[in-house]
């Protein structure tokens, strides 16, 4: 039944997410081309500016799109479970764990698809250029920090959003505000957790790779914890009007 739920969810969300992945791909190819173009005149192979450059253009073009896709998926999570479609979802012969998990897994799948699209787009252009090597890109400090933050965030991304919805809807009069507030609280908790971990294990986390692996493990633990809490709260507070 979990497979069936995942299939169904994928089909339903593909209308939004496949275009999003496609746009990501195109956009990151363009980005890659532009980076190469602007560096064509430089003899300096340093890509410290890469981060800044990508950041600037993302802010105006790409982030809104990701933001929109995120909002749409989160709204879909709410609608398919707690609006009138919820009557269908919760009368299906499936456990609540499976129903919620299917949505989380599908969110995760789309995330990976988007990330792959970006990666393929960026590195396909950069990799083909003789002046710039992949090494330059990846082992740069700023980029590696960005990468770690990105990976950690990506692992827990949709889970935190969905848990926020589950908690937010308990405040029945102001669901959106409730969701937003619980998201902020959750992000603060996660960030705080990361800071604590960093300060305690500061001596151990020497190289980028170790930090990356370690934080990823923390993120994975957080992932399972967040989703477990989500399923628990959903089971206890299911009251479809």
């Amino acid at each position: 039944m979990l497979k069936k739920l995942i299939n169904y969810e994928l089909k339903k969300t593909s209308k939004i997410m496949i275009p999003a992945c496609f746009i990501s791909l195109i956009y990151s190819i363009l980005c890659g081309v532009q980076i190469l173009h602007s560096y064509a005149g430089y003899n300096d192979h340093s890509l410290n500016d890469f981060g800044d450059y990508f950041g600037e253009t993302s802010f105006y073009v790409y982030l809104p799109m990701i933001f929109a896709a995120t909002i749409l998926l989160t709204v879909r999570y709410y609608k398919s479970l707690y609006a009138s479609e919820g009557y269908f979802a919760f009368t299906l012969p499936a456990s609540i764990s499976n129903i919620i998990s299917s949505k989380i897994i599908v969110g995760f799948i789309w995330e990976i698809a988007t990330i792959l699209s970006i990666t393929v787009g960026l590195f396909s252009t950069i990799a083909f250029n003789k002046n710039v090597t992949l090494k330059d890109c990846c082992l740069n400090d700023f980029v590696s920090e960005l990468l770690i933050a990105f990976v950690v965030w990506a692992i827990v991304y949709y889970s935190t959003l969905y848990l926020s919805v589950t908690i937010g809807r308990l405040w029945s009069k102001h669901i959106i505000i409730g969701t937003f507030l619980s998201l902020q609280v959750m992000l603060a908790v996660l960030l705080f957790g990361l800071i604590i971990v960093n300060s305690i294990l500061y001596n151990v986390l020497t190289t980028t790779i170790i930090t990356l692996i370690f934080y990823s493990i923390c993120a994975i633990i957080a992932f399972f914890l967040i989703n477990y809490i989500n399923i628990l709260i959903t089971k206890k507070t299911l009251n479809l009007e």
Binding site: K12, Y87, T91, P93
Partner: peptide, 19 residues
């Protein structure tokens, strides 16, 4: 009330619940 009961219950709600 659970998976087994939902398999054998057919529910018609008072509102439209479909996509």
């Amino acid at each position: 009330v659970g998976i087994e009961s939902k398999k054998i219950i057919s529910y018609l709600p008072d509102c439209t619940c479909l996509d």
